[in-house]
């Protein structure tokens, strides 16, 4: 039971981290109608910039400065890259972000090399917050949870309670009308893209010390982030939150419990082959849950899309 609670907490950390990426991505999508393939690359840039800054000033300055640099880069890329490609249609836009993702990975390797860089949590948070039946829970992870929740609340407040948020929401649905009312819609787009990428950068700053800061970090996470927002429903902030948490727990529990296909098959009444390594079904018999854990989100996504193409919380079809 205590291990179950620890797993709930671990899954929460993974899920909230995913959410920090998804929230920005889903905002950008609902505004511009384009899936930003490079979103996880901005997450990586956040981690690397924070590492570079932490070499000079320590962790906390990086926490503030790195997301700002990433956000400015994102805004500039929107202004001088994406906006130009926008006129050609959605597919070139998507392909542009795809190319951008490749380019950012090369860029990171060019400057920081191909090895993992030693980016570590700050010493102030390098202690055990609490332990449940011998399972320690580091203070840094508590910090991650609070950061993510704070980000969500701030975002929710801005979007629903402030004038800027209202303009953004209006520009989402009726860009022409908002433009005619005298708002600078391209500016709003640039701002949203900048803020979205800055949030990804912030996620990178926070996750880098725990998940490792290396050139492949964007690739392993990028596809999962996509799965989250598609499952949650494109453009839905609540959907992104629910899907992120679901997938976070799904991955944690799949890795934690060694359920074996063997037990299931025997329970179903099949007979275990005596010479396993000559059986054509050997791979099925030896399958365990942790082996398939990372592909469960994809299976989940395919099923959700086939049954409900707009995703769990999506209002419109894409």
């Amino acid at each position: 039971m205590s291990l179950f609670i620890v797993n709930i907490l671990d899954g929460l950390v993974t899920g909230l981290l995913l959410f920090m990426l998804c929230s920005g991505l889903t905002l950008i999508f609902s505004m511009m109608g384009v899936l930003n393939f490079a979103h996880a690359s901005f997450y990586m840039l956040g981690a690397y910039f924070a590492y570079q800054i932490s070499m000079f000033t320590g962790f906390w300055a990086g926490l503030i400065v790195a997301p700002i640099i990433v956000g400015v880069m994102g805004a500039l890329i929107e202004r001088y890259g994406l906006r130009r490609v926008h006129q050609y249609g959605h597919v070139p836009e998507l392909i542009f972000t795809f190319g951008l993702a490749l380019l950012i990975e090369e860029f990171v390797q060019f400057f920081w090399g191909r090895q993992q860089v030693p980016y570590n949590p700050p010493e102030a948070l390098d202690f055990t917050a609490f332990a449940i039946a011998g399972n320690t829970f580091p203070a840094y992870k508590v910090f991650m949870i609070f950061m993510a929740i704070a980000l969500f609340l701030v975002l929710l407040y801005i979007l629903t309670r402030t004038r800027v948020g209202m303009t953004i929401q209006a520009a989402l649905s009726y860009p022409e009308t908002v433009q005619n009312l005298g708002h600078n819609v391209p500016m709003v787009f640039m701002g949203v893209f900048g803020v979205g990428t800055a949030m990804a950068g912030l996620a990178g700053v926070i996750a880098g010390p725990v998940m490792g800061t290396f050139p492949g970090m964007a690739f392993t996470l990028g596809a999962i982030v996509f799965v989250c927002i598609v499952v949650g429903g494109l453009g839905s902030l609540w959907g992104a939150l629910v899907a992120s948490l679901l997938i976070g727990w799904m991955q944690t529990f799949a890795a934690s419990y060694n359920l074996r296909m063997e037990d299931l098959l025997i329970w179903l009444g099949f007979e275990k082959p005596t010479l396993m390594w000559e059986s054509a079904w050997q791979d099925l018999w030896t399958l365990t849950l942790p082996q398939v854990g990372p592909i469960l989100p994809y299976l989940f996504m395919v099923i959700v899309l086939v049954v409900r193409p707009q995703g769990l919380f999506g209002k419109r079809e894409t």
Binding site: L94, A280, I295, L305, P309
Partner: peptide
């Protein structure tokens, strides 16, 4: 192929990842 657009693209991504991962698991 029931839907076009993003839904098709995402299903293709999911299926692609599933088959690639299965290719490591199904050794036989």
């Amino acid at each position: 192929t029931r839907r076009a657009g993003t839904t098709f693209a995402m299903i293709s991504l999911g299926v692609g990842q599933l088959v690639a991962s299965l290719s490591i698991i199904i050794v036989i």
